[in-house]
């Protein structure tokens, strides 16, 4: 039901994207000293959101069917082309910290938007 509201849908998609990015950053930091490991990152959320949905929405033949809007396609992994250390590792802990801070900020943003959308709906229902 909430998928129909564009604002909440976007906040949900952003939360999903940010959760995936958190895994990528965690993997980079865990492998900060693994020889030959290349640091990875996800494409920005704007790009992946504009490209739209991959799985098509389900067709409904009955008005009582629950609509399914399809899912955002998983964003592409990009590999850093930074200067590698002598053991072939390209992870820079400083860059990863910046990425982690970005992830946290975007996550807070998506949750904030979702929550304020919920408050709006409550207000429109006449509740506090």
């Amino acid at each position: 039901m909430f998928e129909r509201i564009e604002m909440m849908r976007m906040a949900r998609a952003m939360g999903h994207h940010v959760a995936q990015r958190q895994v990528v950053v965690a993997r980079n930091i865990a492998n900060a000293d693994t020889p030959g490991y290349r640091a990875q990152d996800l494409a920005p959320f704007e790009d992946s959101y504009r490209r739209g949905v991959e799985t098509p929405a389900l067709r409904t033949s009955n008005p009582r069917h629950i609509p399914y809007e399809g899912q955002l396609r998983p964003t592409a992994l990009t590999t850093d082309e930074a200067q590698a250390s002598p053991n072939g590792n390209t992870v820079s802990l400083e860059t990863e910290m910046v990425r982690a801070a970005e992830v946290k900020r975007q996550h807070d943003l998506s949750i904030g938007i979702y929550r304020s959308a919920l408050t709006l709906m409550r207000a429109s229902l006449g509740r506090r």
């Binding site: 939360g15 940010v18 959760a19 958190q22 950053v25 965690a26 930091i29 865990a30 900060a32 000293d33 802990l93 990863e96 910290m97 982690a100 992830v103 946290k104 996550h107 807070d108 949750i111 979702y114 929550r115 919920l118």
Partner: peptide
């Protein structure tokens, strides 16, 4: 170096935990 990398992983752990907690906070209303 090992200590520094350990701390970075710990920070990541803490941040992930916080993100999960704030997600669950939505349910608590």
């Amino acid at each position: 170096e090992a200590g520094r990398s350990y701390e970075a992983n710990l920070r990541m752990f803490e941040q992930t935990r916080q993100m999960g907690a704030s997600l669950l906070e939505i349910l608590r209303r």
